[in-house]
């Protein structure tokens, strides 16, 4: 059974249709890549699933139950949460406290376990030595890893990662791909928006391509990247 299912999901802003009757299924433990040109509706898709925006039509199902209409915090406690395209943090809290708060409220554990788990997640993403630093002092790659530790601490089973590798160099991208594989091995299902095609080809089990709010292709990464419609809309002729 799929852990997440999206049926005919539609979002219009006035006359602009940002997302047009998109269907998708995410299997438990799967990594689904979402690609497409800027403005294709990728972030809108994430916002609708995570409850940041309300769909104009269609519905989102988590483990078979409809969740559209729930608030973001309720969706998070249920088991779906997202990172932000521009990494967000609680600037004057310590790095540890950033993760700690997500455990307290997202997972709903008490102070002691939340602190211990926050330390474990910081270790996991490689930020343990920064635990006591103020979050606002982190560099961009560190902020992205903190964002990841935060969503892991909420104990959500479905993670929506919005360009979590943007701005990273090649070495950092490779490390990030390895880290996300480990995240999957820890029982998470992932949807990943990414522009770095090599990372998507390495990481994703399946890829879904959006263009002008519509799904134009879906399948294994290597098949999708050979699809003429995808090349025309997104990758460009030079890519082949």
């Amino acid at each position: 059974m799929s852990i997440l299912e999206v049926r005919a999901l539609t979002k219009s802003f006035g006359s602009l249709v940002a997302l047009d009757r998109v269907d998708l299924k995410l299997a438990e433990g799967e990594i689904l890549g979402i690609i497409g040109p800027n403005g294709a509706g990728k972030s809108t898709l994430f916002n609708l699933i995570a409850g940041l925006e309300r769909p104009s039509a269609g519905a989102v199902y988590y483990r078979g139950a409809a969740i559209s209409g729930l608030t973001t915090d309720a969706v998070c406690r249920l088991g779906i949460t997202k990172t932000f395209q521009i990494p967000q943090l609680f600037p004057r809290m310590s790095v540890l406290e950033n993760v700690f708060v997500a455990g307290l409220y997202g997972k709903g554990v008490s102070l002691g376990p939340a602190r211990y788990q926050a330390e474990t997640w910081l270790e996991f993403v490689g930020l343990a030595d920064k635990a006591a630093a103020a979050a606002e002092t982190l560099s961009l790659p560190e902020r992205r890893r903190l964002d990841l530790a935060r969503v892991l601490a909420t104990d959500a089973r479905v993670l929506l990662l919005d360009e979590n590798m943007a701005g990273l160099n090649q070495r950092e991208v490779a490390a990030s791909v390895a880290l996300l594989r480990q995240v999957r091995d820890r029982g998470r299902s992932l949807m990943v928006i990414e522009h770095i095609m090599r990372a998507i080809a390495d990481l994703a089990d399946r890829v879904l391509v959006l263009n002008y709010g519509e799904k134009i292709a879906e399948g294994r990464p290597r098949d999708v990247m050979r699809d003429p419609a995808v090349i025309k809309a997104y990758l460009g002729e030079a890519y082949t």
Binding site: D73, A74, R77, K82, Q88, F90, R92, E97
Partner: peptide, 25 residues
Amino acid sequence: RSKFGYGLRAIGENDRLAEASGVNI
């Protein structure tokens, strides 16, 4: 030093992120 206080501080620093982290703001 309480859970409630940490939730409030999270709201004060970044309410959207607090909400996305499970805080009923």
